[in-house]
Design a protein around this nucleic acid. Structure first.
Lengths: 200, 200
DNA sequence: ACAAAACTTGCGTGTTCCGCAAGTTTTCTT
DNA sequence: AAGAAAACTTGCGGAACACGCAAGTTTTGT
């Protein structure tokens, strides 16, 4: 059951992350102070900085957590499944809508992916996802150390996911993220099949 | 000849970037103040912040500039050259050693790619490179708007370049960056040729 | 039940980042 | 060539931030 201490820590981190994101969406990024976030999460301002080095980091915490799960999601797929199937399923599962109402979530994503001041933090989350995926892919296919296949595939999948997110934000009428992710990965498979050296 | 104003601005920006990077390598990132950088570059502290929003941004300015050039480097290749040849040549050219002595440069790269506080800024530079390359690739192959080929290939090339840089930093005996980039891109071509859906 | 380890909190401080307004330099117009 | 317009630099001022430290509190392990 993972110890009280750890559960509390996790809860605080999450509370801070959600508070940060919510406030930023509601009032605009520049009208949110660290103190506000701390207060909304019910901890002291000083404690905020024990969890996050900046408010931007806090706002992107959810994205980071998702990235962290990506590797495990892939590992959770049955071992006899082909890599591509497993990868698609893992990424789709990770983008299932279960959290907050999609509308607010979309605003959050728009903020995080769109605001210049958050770009750095968001890119960290992306990079983490690439790394997590690459490691899991490497394990699954038993790639040897120097092989860049895992990193390249993970990067491509991350790119596709990013494009899927963009399309989802722009989609009218709205669609599910999951659907966009699946579609984008389909396209990725097609793209990958094009002979590189024969392209004019 | 591009106007005096613009030349001056460019010079200041470059001076600040170099000063920032040099000082950070010499003394360690935490022992460099914005004031130090400004003084070393011969401008007022306030002016520093007209050019960069943070000292981290200044330190990564060189990387950003390089990224910016990547797209043009590809565009500069003859139009009748196959894409892959042009891409390899462009990236190799962009990593020719011409700047400062390789040893100091390596320390700089190590700092920028290694220090946690700089990760965000460095990732911005990488992202810029992907975007720049993607755009140039798109133009070259005449991809239509929705096609994710340019983005995916640019991402893969960026990944390979990154790996090349890592290997270069670790190489003993030392090799040229250019060589590592060419080798990594060769490997990328091989990786890309693997059938995605048939991978176990 | 007791000690060790981990976490929270308030305080204090050095640094940062940016708005503002005045002064200077470059560019544009005629 | 001269004067107006636009762009850049600089100092001042202040709000916010990030973090070390030490004292108090909570959880954990024995």
């Amino acid at each position: 059951m993972a110890g009280l201490r750890e559960r509390k820590k996790h809860a605080t981190r999450q509370a801070l992350g959600i508070a940060a994101m919510t406030l930023a969406v509601e009032r605009g990024l520049d009208n949110v102070l660290v103190d506000d976030i701390a207060e909304a999460a019910g901890v002291s301002p000083r404690t905020f900085n024990n969890y996050f080095a900046s408010k931007y980091e806090a706002i992107c915490a959810l994205a980071v957590d998702r990235s962290r799960r990506a590797g495990d999601a892939l590992r959770a797929r049955p071992a006899d499944e082909p890599l591509w199937t497993a990868l698609t399923a893992a990424l789709a599962a990770e983008h299932r809508d279960d959290g907050p109402p999609t509308r607010e979530w979309a605003d959050g994503v728009r903020l995080v992916t769109g605001h210049p001041a958050l770009q750095g933090e968001y890119l960290k989350a992306q990079a983490l996802m690439r790394d997590a995926l690459a490691e899991a892919i490497g394990e699954r296919v038993g790639a040897d150390p120097g092989d860049m296949f895992p990193a390249v595939l993970a990067g491509a999948a991350a790119t596709a996911t990013e494009i899927a997110l963009d399309r989802w934000l722009a989609a009218d009428p709205p669609t599910s993220v999951q659907h966009q992710v699946e579609r984008a990965l389909d396209e990725l498979a097609e793209v990958w099949s094009r002979p590189l050296k024969e392209t004019a």
